[in-house]
Amino acid sequence: MKMDVSVALGAVIQGVMMGAIYGLIGLGITMVFAVTGMLNFAHGDFMSLAMYLCLALHTAFNLDPYLSLFVTVPAFFVLGLLLYHFFFRRTLKAEILMVVQLTLGMVFIIENGVLMVFGPDYRSVPNFLLTTVVSMGDMFAVRGTYLVTFLVGGAVGFGLYWLIESTDLGRQIRAIAQDREAAQLMGVNVARVQMLIFAIGIALLGLAGPLLTSILTMEPYFGLHLTLFAFITFVMGGVGNFLGTLIAGYILGVTESMGMLYLGGYYGAAVPYAIFVLLLIFRPHGILGTK
């Protein structure tokens, strides 16, 4: 029985660590929604793309994912700018429905592109921390990879939160989210902020991807899962509440790991989704309400 507590605690810790990243990915989708009003169905697929990119870099140059980070983050930022400029800028003006078609098309392109290049099998990317284990006292040990993920994820997450709350850019973001027209009257260049936020959202995925290569196994079609997880944190956090999204990420991480621990297999995988459904029924405005 005593071992159970330790194991459970270990699962919670693990969940918290994953939660840092879930929150970050969710924040990307939340910010983009708040500022542009669109939901990118291909969100998770970009992260998948980042992960496969790490795999390619590792296979070709033996580049450790943690170093690939320095390549993917700026690359994805630029990618975000380009995508927004060429595809989404006009779409948002025209009709929000087009965003669905565009992003679903992108889902198919990315997922199947990856399938064609890398094959359907599960893959993962090794990195130098894979075998490092950090012990916290007597109770349990945490794998180095999880720790790094947590530290970086948490830092960036709360860094972004600070940006949104305390800087001019953050005020612009919140202004657009609360009243777009009034923001324009304040001299906010809404179009530019929208493009910037979208690029940041994609860049965040370029960050999360490499961090998660050591923890998650990849398969070509799991991008939609990730989008869904991001979306769950988005709704759980209160549809546009930035802090709520970060917190929801942790909740999601913990419920997932507890689910896997106690139920295992497919039932365990269903737990986060079940929690989501319960939330929709009993507390639809999210854990912190709309902001």
Binding site: L39, I96, V100, T227, L228, F231, V239, Y273, P284
Partner: peptide, 15 residues
């Protein structure tokens, strides 16, 4: 009932 914004309906469905 949850009054989700438009596109969220789709992702909730996926859930």
């Amino acid at each position: 009932r949850a009054r989700l914004p438009h596109l969220s309906f789709a992702l909730a469905a996926m859930g």
